[in-house]
Computed example of a mutant assay.
Amino acid sequence: MRQSSIPGSSGQVRPMTLFGDPVLHAPCAEVTEFGPELARLVEDMYASMYAARGVGLAANQIGVARRVFVFDCPDDEDRRHLGHVVNPRLVEADGVVVRGPEGCLSLPGLEAGTPRFDHALVEGVDLRGEPVRVEGTGFFARCLQHECDHLEGMVYVDRLEGWRRRRALRAVAKAPWSEPRAQP
């Protein structure tokens, strides 16, 4: 059976992990085995991201505490960036800090003005362990920083301060998908 070249077309949609689940609030483990299981995970991540209408997805957002993320995200010039990074490291985040609306598939229906740098550089490897370097500006830089944060056990709410953070946490508590649980 030949695999399709369309990312996610052979993947299964997995349920999204929601804010408050411990897997979202702890650093993810490095990937050490490269093979069919990792390839299946990446396909499932694409399928899950597309089903949820997202532009990026970290593995812990579908309950897998491994350092992997996928993306299909435009930049500010509407150029499409499509790919995945295994064991990513955010090696540069610089430029102008822009406070822009940011949402998350693990906090469905919510967003908040979140400060991010307008340039980011991520290095890691692909499914075969070959080096990958992904650079982005604008909205795509925001996506790269957001997904790297997930793998460190952070969500965008962790970047908020003061009244913005309090307002976001109140919105989480009122969200129809939220369950009463202790704050992380």
Rank of each mutant, 00 (worst) to 15 (best):
V64I: 14
P101W: 09
V64F: 11
V68K: 03
V96P: 07
L82V: 15
P101K: 06
Y50T: 06
D72I: 03
G11L: 11
P27N: 03
G109I: 10
A58E: 02
L105D: 12
P101I: 05
P88C: 03
G8T: 05
L57M: 08
A47L: 14
E92W: 07
P15C: 10
A26L: 02
L90T: 02
A112D: 09
N87P: 14
V31D: 09
G35Q: 07
D75Q: 03
P36F: 03
G95H: 11
R66C: 00
C28H: 00
P36V: 06
P74F: 08
A58P: 08
A59F: 06
L41R: 00
G20R: 10
R67W: 02
G95I: 07
Y46L: 04
T17P: 10
T17V: 12
L57G: 01
C73L: 04
D94W: 09
L24N: 11
G20P: 13
M16S: 10
G20V: 07
R40W: 04
V42P: 09
D72Q: 04
V64Q: 14
R79M: 09
Y50N: 12
V23A: 01
N60R: 02
T32R: 15
G8L: 11
A39W: 04
L57S: 01
P15E: 14
R14T: 04
M16W: 02
A51E: 12
F71E: 02
D72G: 09
E102D: 15
H81M: 06
A39R: 15
L110G: 09
Y50W: 14
T114C: 13
P22H: 04
D78I: 05
P74M: 05
D75L: 02
R40I: 02
A58Y: 06
E102H: 08
D78L: 15
L18A: 03
C28R: 00
V55S: 01
L90I: 01
P101C: 03
V31W: 10
R40E: 10
E77F: 09
Q61I: 00
G56P: 01
L105V: 10
V91N: 13
C73H: 01
M45W: 07
L82W: 05
E30Q: 15
A52S: 14
Q12V: 07
V98K: 12
N87D: 06
A52C: 12
P74V: 05
D72H: 15
V70H: 02
D75T: 02
L105Y: 12
S10P: 05
V55C: 03
Y46W: 13
Q3C: 08
T32M: 05
F69N: 00
T114I: 09
V64H: 12
P7Q: 09
V98D: 08
E30G: 06
V96K: 15
G54F: 01
V70F: 04
P15D: 10
E77G: 07
F71Q: 02
M45K: 03
F71H: 08
L18N: 03
G100K: 11
G109Q: 14
V64G: 11
L107F: 14
D78V: 08
E37N: 11
